[in-house]
């Protein structure tokens, strides 16, 4: 059982990922879909940060003392990924605004109905 809880951060990763994924699929509201997508992406950040952890390691700041550091590389990577995530959200939101202007709604169902009646 101990190994189960030892890896709790990975369980959280999986839980968040599935939650986000489910929202993307199940929600009909375009904004809510994007929120789901955000949760989905954020879960991956957690995965990366978890793997950079070295038990007993400190923040990777160079000091004289002989200490072990956490791996900084995943952190750096995830900084990039966060930026990408923000950009994605921004583009998505911009799209939603224009969809709202063009269709007058952001409900997927209603958009499909409008397109089908063309």
């Amino acid at each position: 059982m101990s190994s189960f809880f030892d890896l709790y951060n990975y369980w959280i990763f999986i839980f968040l990922m599935m939650t986000g994924f489910y929202i993307v699929i199940a929600q009909g509201n375009l904004v809510k879909k994007i929120i789901g997508l955000n949760i989905f992406q954020t879960s991956v950040f957690l995965l990366y940060i978890s793997m950079g952890k070295v038990s007993g390691g400190t923040a990777p700041i160079l000091i004289e003392a002989d200490v072990s550091y956490s791996n900084p590389l995943p952190h750096v990577l995830i900084l990039t990924a966060i930026v990408v995530g923000v950009a994605t959200t921004a583009v998505a939101m911009a799209l939603i605004v224009r969809i709202q202007k063009a269709y007058g709604t952001i409900e997927e169902q209603e958009i499909h109905e409008q397109d089908a009646s063309l």
Partner: peptide
């Protein structure tokens, strides 16, 4: 065509899921 917007949105959602999968794989 206004359907370009929904097409782009759909692509965005699927593309981001794909890219995130790749990110997980790389991780």
């Amino acid at each position: 065509d206004r359907r370009a917007l929904t097409a782009a949105y759909q692509y965005l959602v699927m593309g981001t899921i794909g890219a995130t999968f790749i990110l997980i794989g790389i991780g």
